[in-house]
């Protein structure tokens, strides 16, 4: 297969970027999208050029490192698939593919396709946990949890923190990410003591970092490689209102 790549190149966050065209000739159907980039990069290195920088690590769709927007959709158009698990057989010989970094004010570009996602870290630090120090736990089966709730919590917990939601959202909103974490804990008895504090703190941090607000377009759900449902956003809206109304403001 011959693929034309239109790739965003940007030396560093301060410089202007632009689209650069590359033609890759020997693409095989069994290659993953990132392996195509590997081949291109090997070629660029041998030509003495700077290879295209992109984040990646596990290459099995779980670490959440990869962050390419492919033809206008984070991780590409394939449903429920990360970039590293996207295979070239989903494209046709002669295709032109646009590859850009995840875009959001809170995710500044570091270089080429690499973005800085520490904004998600700050949101997690604000409240994405159950405050239980090691050694404080009672026997695990002392806390029965209905299978339905455990399964639903797992649906939310499947989030890999890649940032596709905030980057696909026309508003740049991180609501799906935040609601996945808030929703997981809200469904479990362990999360109840900090439920109100958590949702207020995480949303506050989200807004502080410059993410936009949700207007229910559901693009996040469609782009999410782990199919996290916007149902959790709905739940969080309720939680947040309750917490805002019934918590003493500081």
């Amino acid at each position: 297969m011959k693929i034309t790549l239109m790739v965003w190149r940007q030396k560093c966050c301060k410089e202007q970027g632009k689209i650069e065209k590359f033609v890759v000739d020997n693409v095989e159907e069994d290659m993953s999208f990132l392996e195509m980039f590997d081949i291109l990069n090997e070629r660029l290195i041998l030509e003495g050029k700077d290879p295209i920088a992109f984040d990646h690590d596990c290459r099995e769709g779980i670490c959440g490192a990869c962050s390419m927007t492919i033809n206008g959709v984070p991780h590409g158009h394939e449903h429920g698939t990360t970039t590293c698990q996207l295979h070239m057989r989903k494209f046709k010989d002669g295709d032109t593919i646009y590859v850009e970094p995840f875009r959001n004010k809170a995710f500044p570009v570091i270089k080429d396709l690499v973005v800085d996602r520490t904004a998600y870290e700050r949101i997690m630090q604000a409240g994405g946990f159950v405050s239980v120090a090691t050694g404080n736990a009672k026997d695990a089966n002392n806390l029965p949890i209905s299978k339905e709730n455990a399964d639903l919590a797992m649906d939310a917990a499947a989030c890999i923190g890649c940032g596709a939601c905030a980057s696909s959202c026309p508003n740049g909103s991180a609501m799906l990410f935040v609601s996945a974490k808030v929703g997981q804990f809200a469904l479990l008895p362990q999360g109840q003591p900090e439920r109100k504090r958590r949702v207020l703190a995480m949303i506050k941090q989200m807004e502080k970092d410059g993410f936009g607000g949700c207007t229910n377009m559901y693009e996040c759900e469609a782009a999410c490689p782990k199919n996290v449902s916007v149902r959790f956003i709905a739940k969080m809206n309720r939680d947040y209102l309750r917490a805002s109304l019934f918590t003493k403001s500081k």
Partner: peptide, 10 residues
């Protein structure tokens, strides 16, 4: 803005 933007669900 994305140079090339497409929407899945919006």
């Amino acid at each position: 803005a994305y140079q090339y933007k497409s929407f899945l669900k919006a």
